[in-house]
Design a protein around this nucleic acid. Structure first.
Length: 512
RNA sequence: GCUCCUAUAGUGUAGUCCGGUUAAGCAUUUUGGCUUCUCAAGCCAAAGACUCGGGUUCAAAUCCCGAUGGGAGCACCA
């Protein structure tokens, strides 16, 4: 308890403990990622091991950015390894999509491989484990295995001698059917860590593998393949999300049993956005029901979707670095990412006028037939020329605030005195003088107005429930200059927000 | 149920290992101001936090014990 005032404490300290008043060297605020345990300059090897069983999403981005940044930070090596040991779910399509996603993010890797490149090594190691009595072939029923695990009881297979295990291993190559036999690690059926209770090392899968076809049918489990791969490919720091934390003990046990080098294993929390699920379990049915168009639907957290929505890779990287390397659960709000993105995108977004819920405004006595408007308020991004003839569209939202007798300014054009309000407005041009406190609005010329669809993505889920209003569509008018912009370019619709040009007649709202 | 991880402002984090010039830094959010031919960006300011209860100590966000909340694992997925 701190019962003394700080003054009294200070006195007390000076009298009794003068040495602690000597200031310690000030700890510098950290920039970037925290130090990696046991990391040496030039000797760090990290890796990213996605399973090619789906499209890459923001969670992949976190994992790959952290690992590749660490390699960079220590001048080390970064390996991309496709973890393809379950032919039932892995596809070339996903393999390719993951690489496309990583390239978009600007990730560079020094080495690329597939876990399945080393099948022969896994087999060798398996035989080594069998011969040393650290692994055995189990032919129990799946339910019994599970039951025994819960009850911490060993089954009779674990008693089998080495010869029999070797024979059964050979039988797994052809005779046994999938499900009939597995190779288990001899861990500890009594262990508190359930992962250690004689886990599966190999199982039979007859599905055709996307690159190896039917060459193999005994496939290593995650724990087996990760342990061996990280060890033989020189990985010094294996970093992955924390749902794997319990496997650490197992992976070390496997490597110890084989007398192999053990890399440091680090863990970080998973990254998910509020209301943006990324599990296929949730997304797939939505696609099938037509509620979500595809994996690039802008409401999704896939990289493809983020890109379509107008999120830049630099922003994703800064955002992820800002999250730090904690093990606490994070449900990041999307607006944190938006803030980073806005800063990236602001400098290079063409400013354009766009009106929604359009109302007509006719202006009399216009002295000019065209105006030139700069494409960016600060940066020199050129100008565009707009033909005008006195017939304009203005936004419905603005129309509500415009009353007869008011003066307004049409941005970049001039001031107008409103002579008639209603469903349609009329006004009179009154010059281009100084304006301070009058309403300044954007406009579109009727004769050249270009109609587009504006898509506004919102959260997909409210809690567990699909948000039926997650996609708002607006029919809006914009300037013809829109047609000259490149697809994928970021635009700021003045007084509305940033949007990405998706096509000649569709734009996707990025953020305010 | 058992085991493990985790807990700092509305949100995300720094600081925790090695207790003390920091009664807590940064970002975001919100609000106000400046600037501005945008409700953007930029600049300035304000608001706002150590889960709870014990203990150790002159001194606890920091060490110890306990409680509570959140997450994960207990797959022939990764």
């Amino acid at each position: 308890m701190n019962q003394l005032s700080s003054e009294e404490q200070k006195k007390e300290i000076e009298e009794n403990f003068p040495e602690i008043l000597v200031p310690k060297e000030k700890i510098e605020g950290r920039v970037g990622l925290p130090e990696l345990e046991g990391a040496e300059q030039g000797k760090v090897v990290t890796r990213f091991t996605p399973e090619p069983n789906g499209y890459p999403h923001i969670g992949h981005a976190k994992a790959v950015i952290i690992s590749s940044e660490y390699a960079k930070m220590y001048g080390g090596k970064f390996i991309l390894r496709m973890d393809d040991t379950n032919p039932e779910v892995e596809r070339m399509e996903y393999h390719a999509a993951i690489k496309v996603g990583l390239e978009w993010l600007g990730i560079e890797w020094d080495e690329e491989k597939q876990t399945s490149d080393d099948m022969e090594i896994f087999y060798e190691k398996c035989i080594e484990l069998i011969n040393s009595g650290r692994a055995y072939v189990c032919t129990c029923k799946r339910d019994n295995i599970s039951k025994n695990r819960r009850e911490r009881k060993a089954c009779k297979c674990s008693m089998g001698d080495i010869d029999k295990n070797n024979k059964n291993w050979e039988k797994m190559k052809e005779k046994f059917k999938p499900g009939d036999a597995i190779v288990r690690f001899r861990g500890d059926m009594k262990a508190d860590n359930a992962v250690m209770r004689d886990p599966v090392l190999f199982r039979i899968i007859d599905e055709s593998h996307y690159t190896l076809g039917k060459k193999y049918r005994i496939w290593p489990s995650y724990d087996m393949s990760v342990a061996i791969e990280d060890s033989i490919s020189g990985v010094t720091h294996a970093l992955r999300s924390k749902e794997f934390e319990l496997r650490k003990e197992l992976i070390y046990a496997i490597l110890d049993a084989l007398n192999m080098r053990k890399p440091y294993q680090g863990f970080f929390s998973r990254l998910e956005f509020k209301g943006m699920p990324m599990s296929k379990r949730l997304i797939k049915p939505l696609i099938e029901e037509g509620k979500v168009s595809w994996y690039d639907d802008p409401r999704l957290p896939t990289l493809e979707a983020l890109k379509r929505r107008g999120i830049r890779p630099e922003a994703i990287k800064k955002f992820i670095m800002s999250l730090g390397l904690t093990k606490a659960n994070t449900l990041a709000p999307f607006d944190a990412l938006e803030a980073f993105n806005r800063k990236v995108v602001d400098a290079e977004s063409t400013r354009l006028f766009m009106v929604s819920n359009a109302r007509k405004l006719t202006v009399k006595n216009l002295p000019i037939s065209s105006v030139e408007i700069p494409n960016h308020p600060i940066n020199d991004m050129g100008k565009r020329k707009i033909e005008i003839d006195g017939n304009f569209y203005i936004s419905g939202d603005d129309a509500q605030n415009i009353k007869q007798g008011m003066q307004i300014r049409l941005l970049g054009l001039g001031n107008v005195s409103i002579t008639k309000e209603g469903t349609e407005f009329e006004g009179e041009f009154i010059g281009d003088g100084e304006t301070t406190n009058i309403l300044k609005i954007q406009w579109v010329s009727q004769k050249t107005a270009h109609a587009i669809k504006m898509i506004i993505p919102k959260v997909l889920f409210n809690g567990e429930e699909f948000n039926e209003e997650s996609l708002e569509e607006l029919d809006v008018y914009t300037e013809p200059h829109y047609l000259q912009l490149k697809e994928g370019e970021e635009i700021q619709f003045v007084r509305f927000g940033y949007c990405r040009k998706d096509s000649q007649n569709q734009a996707i709202f990025t953020h305010k």
